[in-house]
Simulated assay, not measured.
Amino acid sequence: MPIKVPKGLPAVIALQKEGIKVMEHEALYRPIERPLHIGLLNLMPNKMETEIQIARLLGATPILVDLTLVKIASHLPKNTPASHLASFYQDWEEIKERIFDGFIITGAPVELIPFEEVAYWNELTQILNWTQTNTLSCFNICWAAQAALYHFHGLPKYTLNEKAFGVFRHQGVGSTSPYLRGLSDDLFVPVSRWTEMRRADIPPGSGICVLIESPETGLCLLDDPNHHSLHIFNHLEYDSQTLADEYLRDRSLGRRVSIPANYFPEDCEDLLPRNCWRSHANIIFGNWIKQIGMIKPHKY
């Protein structure tokens, strides 16, 4: 199915090169189809790269998706041109009266900062509360997953002795979950974080179900039905080259970082990494979209 994005969005060119059908906002739908309205609150520094990554996964699903790009009003991004934000993004305050079928909140480079000290924490908690009434399902990624679990359940985060960085083997442990339908028992997932949350801290009676975890890097995907949310601590949306870009960036800045584990062939930085997680990402995002599509649609 096509994905519908704002007219002129640069991501369109990259998506079309990959064979993903893209409709821009002025295109007409077939009358019998109602798209799923999905909002993307993009907190990542390189917003244009993240747009492509998320749109690619939504565009690979069997259901027509209408994507709205959303930003925090209380924070001015440094790495995305103001003209791009003005052309393609809306502040959450501008769309908060709308109803969305699904909403995605990305990670952010603030994981080592205490939650309450993040500059836009108050606005983010308003948005998390808003997802409980204005969307059928919310998919929180990386730091956003930690923020949601802290806000709704009080889960603490722990700083790691060294960065969990690389592509790690995971296991699906929620075998009856519709979000894992069609997924193999073992899967590889990109991980890039300095903090973690732990299974032992999940409150009894919270309804949270662990769906995917790793013996090396811990929790990965959690279902939180009482808050109609999925939380993923890792990065199935990443491109093949994203971990390499992060590694080279951190090294150029003099940061202490090891070569990403299980990523470069023979641990050689000159060899191109192979993507062994894209199919798993398509399955999980596809299952999320299908579950939303099965719920009685909102009236717009």
Rank of each mutant, 00 (worst) to 15 (best):
H25L: 01
Q53P: 07
I202T: 11
N262V: 11
R181F: 03
K71I: 02
V191L: 05
G39M: 12
Y238L: 01
T242V: 03
P265E: 02
V118P: 09
S240G: 07
G286I: 08
N122A: 07
G254D: 09
E18K: 15
T125R: 12
L155A: 01
L160F: 08
Q171S: 06
I259W: 09
D66S: 11
M1H: 07
M23N: 10
L160D: 04
L76T: 15
L230P: 07
I38T: 10
L43K: 00
L253W: 11
T80A: 02
W277R: 01
E237T: 08
I99P: 01
I72K: 02
S229D: 06
L230Q: 06
W130E: 04
S74H: 03
C220F: 08
S214K: 11
N140V: 00
A86C: 02
S87Y: 04
M48Q: 14
S240A: 14
P273G: 11
G254F: 12
N282D: 01
L28G: 03
Q53Y: 04
T195N: 09
S175K: 13
W143F: 08
E237L: 05
L221C: 10
H228K: 15
F88Y: 15
L58A: 10
F233D: 04
P2M: 10
S175M: 05
D185A: 10
G8Q: 08
Y247M: 12
V70R: 01
A55Q: 06
V22L: 11
A82F: 00
E213F: 07
F168W: 15
T135C: 15
G154F: 08
V5L: 15
H151V: 03
N282A: 05
P45S: 08
I127N: 03
R249Q: 13
D185H: 13
E33W: 02
F264H: 08
L211S: 12
G172E: 08
P178V: 07
M1C: 03
I52Y: 13
F233L: 15
G205K: 11
P77R: 06
P31W: 13
K296V: 14
D267L: 14
E116L: 04
D250F: 03
I99N: 09
I232F: 04
L76Q: 14
L112M: 13
A261Y: 12
Q132N: 05
N46G: 06
H151E: 00
